[in-house]
Amino acid sequence: MARTWTRLHDFLGHPPGPVTYDMVAEAVQRKLGESDDLDWKEALPAASPVPGQWNEFAKDVAAMANTRGGLLVYGVSDDITMAGIDLAKVNDKQLGQWLRVHLQPTVSGVSYLPLPATDGSGKDVLVVDVPASEMAPHFLYGWQQKDKDKTTFNAPFRHRDDTDYMPEHQIALAYRDRFARQAAAEAALEQHLRHTTDLVLGESEAPAAWLVIAARPTRPIPRMVPALSRPEAQHVVSSGAKRADALLASAIPMPRLLGPQLFPYLLGNNPRKGLRRWVDTNMLVPARATRQRGVLVELHHDGTVVTAVDLSHRT
């Protein structure tokens, strides 16, 4: 999914939103220089004529992902003038294949935004939006000719307006950061599970059996992204309920324990605001108390989802 806040937004003073052709054209007209998160490219990426050859597109994507993410804009020359490209020649499936073949690990979440010219010039552009990767460092491998043919395996990164390669100590730091993020994510999940389990068991009559599930995106939603509105939270809950019911109907051809009767007990899908989350439940709030199966759903602003269902009744 393309980001809604980029170097172009910052430079032009635009509010968060999709990147548009007019934004690219204005940045070019105002001669916005390259940086660690913006790289102007005149021509579309060229295919590697020989399997295993160094792939410049994969290198550029890895460099952005290994740094802090950024934009590769094709159709703008090195002297920052609009050159344009032929959008009919853009093959995002092939570009994605190059990333899978040439990078280890591959970079996920890359967005390809073809932007036809809106000023009548016919100079279309392609914006490749590369997010900062939680799986950095990403290594590019292949053979290239420098002095002599040799096979290389390097981790590129952006340094100001240039692409360089990580020395050993920087690679070690990148791995340490990755493992620290993974440990923090696991700790956050454990905390959600422990907190929710203690909460629902404290509200239950002993003995009780609860199913508690916590899920968290590999790349948490940034804090700058606006929180879900109430209608959006309601849509997520209702869509999830319909999807779950459809999956259960196809997988279990018999009366289901957690069938379509589950979510109506959320009392009309009316989530309430919590601390950086939406909470929908038929317990905890006296006015919504029920003797039916207890359900708790939390939609956290960072993308974490927690669901708890009381399995003690009618089992």
Rank of each mutant, 00 (worst) to 15 (best):
R100A: 15
V61F: 08
R68D: 00
G96N: 14
A188S: 13
E26C: 13
D37T: 03
E168V: 15
G294D: 09
R194N: 12
H235M: 12
L32H: 10
L257G: 03
V24P: 04
D119A: 02
E232G: 12
W54S: 05
V125E: 05
L113Q: 07
A27F: 01
R256G: 09
G109K: 04
A63I: 12
A185Y: 09
S238G: 01
Y141T: 12
A215W: 12
L267K: 12
R194M: 15
L173M: 09
L8V: 05
T81A: 05
S133I: 03
G70F: 04
L267C: 14
P167W: 06
A155Q: 00
L275A: 14
R243A: 15
A241C: 07
V125G: 13
V125A: 06
M64H: 04
H102N: 15
A63M: 02
R160N: 10
Q104T: 15
A233V: 07
H9R: 06
H235D: 12
A187D: 13
L266T: 11
F139D: 08
G122Y: 10
L140D: 15
T67N: 13
T163C: 06
D280N: 14
A88S: 15
V76G: 02
A47K: 14
Q170V: 13
V225S: 03
Y21E: 11
L201S: 08
I221V: 13
E56H: 10
A62G: 08
A214R: 00
K93V: 05
L296S: 01
F57W: 11
D124A: 13
S77N: 10
P16N: 02
